[in-house]
Amino acid sequence: MAQSAAPPAVAPDAPLTLPVRAILPWAAFFGILMLILLYFVGAEGGTAAVFSGEGVHEWVHDGRHLLGFPCH
C-alpha cells in the first residue's frame, strides 16, 4: 500500500459506505451464482430441465412447495 495514497478525508460523522465499484464485481459474479442456486430449488425439472429426468425436482420437492415456489 502506497503511503501517498491517503484515504479521502471523511467528515467525522459521515456514515460509513462501501464504494459501488468495490461491490459490483462481487454482486455480478455471486449474484448470478446465487440465482443459479435458486433455480435448482425453484424451477429445475418442472419448467426447463438442465439435467434430464425429474431427479432434482423430486429431491428438493418438499422444499420447493414449502418455500412458496409453484409445483404440482
Binding site: 459521515a14 456514515p15 460509513l16 459506505t17 462501501l18 459501488v20 461491490i23 462481487w26 454482486a27 455471486f30 449474484g31 451464482l33 446465487m34 440465482l35 442456486l37 435458486l38 435448482f40 430449488v41 425453484g42 423430486e58 429431491w59 428438493v60 420437492h61 418438499d62 422444499g63 420447493r64 414449502l66 418455500l67
Partner: peptide, 27 residues
C-alpha cells in the same frame, strides 16, 4: 435430506444476495 438441501440452497442464496444488498445499503 431433500428438504434440507432445498432449504439450505434457498437460505444461502438469499443470504448471499442480502449481504450484497447490505453492502449497497450501508450508509
Amino acid at each position: 435430506a431433500g428438504l434440507a438441501t432445498g432449504v439450505l440452497f434457498f437460505t444461502t442464496a438469499f443470504a448471499g444476495i442480502a449481504a450484497l444488498a447490505f453492502c449497497f445499503a450501508l450508509g
